[in-house]
Design a protein around this nucleic acid. Structure first.
Length: 597
RNA sequence: GCGCUCGUAGCUCAGCUGGAUAGAGCACCAGACUUCGAAUCUGGGGGUCGGGGGUUCGAAUCCCUCCGAGCGCGCCA
């Protein structure tokens, strides 16, 4: 929606000015305009927006930036919405727009409502966002929160920016870990049958959370499994255990408001109608990317039972990885990495040319080989434009009142995702997990995130929305027929005399609101949902500031009892604010409350 | 030893893919307010952007190199 994005609109004006200069012979025909940007200046004294056009074009035009800037500025001054166009610094053109431009921007918000900021940079392209993908060997712990929230918000953001998003969870239901899960559950099964289980052996999962699995198996099979050989009971127990773990995981995710479209089973790659892992390896082998060979022993900490043997290797080094990677274990089964190649190929086969994987920081060392895998998949599938972006979410440090929360992994004592959500609620969890760049370590303080004060960004933003809603409630006296329905109210307020909004604080608020579509686009392209959280904080801050000014100067209040027209105009501004706050919070998956209690 | 990520105010962090005099919150200092236009407000001080070199009109941002922190480093997932 270009007409919503005032920066894009002004960029068009700059381009038009350049076209005029081409016609005048000042600029050469066909000069590259792609690097021109129009952006808000860091210093508000520099005007409303600035463009680097002259500096970018100077070289190609064979002229000096400031001279060229003056020529472009002269063209821009002819435009109605441009109040001022000044050349500054090395050749910036600073633009000040007439207030009418910002008022039009507000009008666009009222007209678009929930769809304000919705973009089309995605162009409907299919993108697969894979996140969480926690092993189904136990309940999710607090460390999983961040990836869950990040992936979910990113998916929301991409959908809003015009991508066709699939939210996916990869279930690691193959391999040794789920076999260990099955053996652990089998002990709980025997326990449920009345047997005394003394200790859970090393390497198995000791947690109580497997007791219900044992009980369920007893209920369904009685004692029938107990005396069968492991080869017979293991698949049965494993499936049941994985199913029950996944049910619990989905449940926990739901408490965080995280919902996936596709749960993709790793096992299905091997046990479906075809062996997709085998097929992928064969295809790679035909293309020359797989060979039988030997690896040098691993560096770093010495490995106890290292044995030098010939094995099936993927030429990851052809694609920038440090060493070639094994595809088959010594017992003849596929490595996890082999499945992962097939899995990413499967995504490409399903039509995804854009893939995003969200991983925890401890998987950082895995990036190169999976990128190498995708490069090879590109080569064997003719999907030349297939792209994978791997987003790493850093560790979360759980605190309570500044003190680290003790967790002992060895004793199996970990804080679950569920416990955290139950204690503080999903909103603080979601907002705070996003109030930080994904690749920076995050402190999450259980005490601070529920504080009702300015220090707590979640509260500050939500309070902004609640306070704005309270304006509507209190406005009924001055404007008795004000609708409570959002769309109806927006429609009514659009008819208000918006040109009476001329206070500096009001204009600042309108400028910030006008930034939203541009922010959405940039955040979506960069895969950075945290930008929304920071923007919302700034927006709420602008609103609270203006509110506080009304305490000292009553003519700046939003409701002016004896001036219904002015009140209407200010309510329109508040409506714009509410629209954007609710939209942004919605993308983060955080409630926009009508009141705080 | 190697790879990845990070290093910005005393602290916690932004910095819009290379733009102008690097921002915000906390803390600190100085005022205001004693309150439902409630869950504080206004202003102020505070920086070799880890160090050094390079690329160019221009670098916190890109490249190289040191220093420091975190994570990872065979057939685990």
């Amino acid at each position: 929606m270009g007409d919503q994005n005032i920066f894009a609109a002004v960029l068009d004006k700059v381009r038009a000015a350049n076209e005029a200069l081409i016609a005048d012979g000042v600029l050469p025909v066909g000069i590259d305009q792609s690097r021109i940007v129009v952006e808000p200046p860091r210093e508000s004294a520099h005007g409303d927006m600035a463009t680097n056009a002259a500096m970018v074009l100077a070289k190609g035009a064979g002229s000096k930036p400031r001279v060229l800037a003056e020529a472009i500025a002269a063209k821009l001054r002819r435009d109605d919405v441009v109040a001022k166009a000044e050349v500054a610094g090395p050749g910036f053109i600073n633009l000040t727009l007439r207030p009418a431009a910002w008022i039009n921007a507000l009008r666009a918000i009222l007209a678009a409502g929930k769809n304000y900021g919705r973009g089309d940079v995605g162009g409907g392209a299919a993108v697969n966002v894979e996140y969480v993908s926690a092993n189904p060997t136990g309940p999710m712990h607090v460390g999983h929160c961040r990836g869950a929230v990040f992936g979910d918000a990113l998916a929301n953001l991409l959908a809003f920016a015009g991508f066709n998003v699939t939210r996916e969870y990869y279930i690691n239901d193959a391999g040794a870990q789920v076999d260990a899960l099955a053996r652990s559950a089998f002990l709980r099964y025997r326990e449920a049958l009345g047997e005394h289980i003394d200790v859970i052996p090393e390497g198995l999962y000791p947690g109580d959370y497997l007791k219900p699995v044992g009980a369920a198996l007893t209920a369904e099979y009685g004692a029938a499994l107990r005396d069968k050989p492991e080869t017979e009971w293991l698949p049965v127990v494993r499936n049941r255990a994985v199913d029950m773990m996944m049910a619990e995981i989905r449940n926990d995710l739901q408490a965080l408001n995280v919902v996936h479209d596709v749960f993709f089973s790793e096992r299905s790659l091997i046990e479906g109608t075809r062996d997709q892992v085998g097929e992928t390896i064969a295809a790679l082998r035909r293309a020359g990317y797989v060979y039988e060979g030997r690896l040098p022993p691993p560096k770093g900490a010495p490995v106890e039972d290292w044995e030098d043997r010939e094995q099936t290797l993927f030429r990851a080094t052809d694609f920038g990885d440090d060493v070639d990677r094994p595809l088959m274990k010594s017992d003849g089964s596929y490595t996890y990495f082999a499945s992962d190649i097939a899995y990413h190929k499967n995504k490409v086969d399903r039509g995804f040319r854009s893939m995003i994987d969200v991983w925890g920081a401890d998987h950082g060392g895995y990036i190169k080989r999976v990128q190498a895998a995708v490069s090879a998949v590109r080569a064997i599938t003719q999907a030349g434009n297939a792209d994978l972006d791997i987003k790493i979410v850093q560790l979360v440090k759980l605190l309570r009142g500044g003190e680290p929360v003790k967790m002992s992994k060895r004793a199996g004592e970990f804080v679950t995702l569920r416990e955290v959500v139950d204690e503080v609620g999903k909103d603080p969890v979601r907002f705070m997990m996003l109030y930080r760049k994904n690749d920076a370590v995050l402190d999450f303080d259980l005490a601070k995130v529920i504080e009702q004060s300015r220090d707590n960004p979640v509260f500050y933003v939500q309070y902004g929305h609640a306070r704005a809603q309270s304006v509507f409630r209190n406005a009924r006296e001055a404007v008795p027929d004000l609708p409570s329905d959002d769309a109806a109210r927006a429609a009514m307020l659009a008819a208000a005399p918006l040109d009476r909004l001329e206070d500096a604080g009001e204009l600042a608020l309108m400028r910030r609101l006008a930034l939203y579509p541009r922010l959405i686009e940039a955040a979506a392209v960069a895969h950075e949902p945290h930008r929304i959280a920071f923007y919302l904080y700034d927006l709420a801050s602008d609103f609270h500031t203006q509110w506080n000014r009304g305490k000292d100067a009553s003519y700046l209040r939003f409701i002016i009892q004896n001036d219904p027209q002015m009140t209407m105009a200010r309510l329109a501004l508040v409506q714009g604010l509410v629209t954007v706050l609710a939209s942004g919070l919605g993308l983060l998956g955080v409630e926009a409350p009508d009141e705080m209690r």
